[in-house]
Amino acid sequence: MGKLTIGCFSSLVGSLSLDFAVKLSEAAVKKGHTVDLWLSGNATMLSKKGQKAFKDYSHLQKPIQELFTTGSFQMTACEACAEARGYHKEDTMEGCKRFSMDWYLASCFSADRVLHIGGD
């Protein structure tokens, strides 16, 4: 089975790109692949804990937490991008890592496929 690395820059709720990235992660993990999801720029918002579910907005915290339990999925937020937006370590969802951008490049190094979703 392969490894998929997905990088996303798009914001939570403001666009559906993160929803797509999470759905793709679910599908890949279900097929037996491992997935690294890298959150940079506005996408770091997905790493914030305490997201509430409303029917008018995407709610990705639950599927992310389910993905963490598979052991085949890791999600990492860009530390600088998060700090710049006021999301500190203590605000981070349990299971989500925080590293600098070189972590993403290293993940790309060992990935069989990379899907990079830039911009909003």
Binding site: F9, D102, F109
Partner: peptide
């Protein structure tokens, strides 16, 4: 922020060896 993030990610290749 897209072009800035592309540049900063490319520059981050300088410290990727740690991983």
């Amino acid at each position: 922020e897209a072009s800035r993030l592309a540049m900063t990610h490319a520059i981050a290749s300088q410290s990727v060896e740690i991983y």
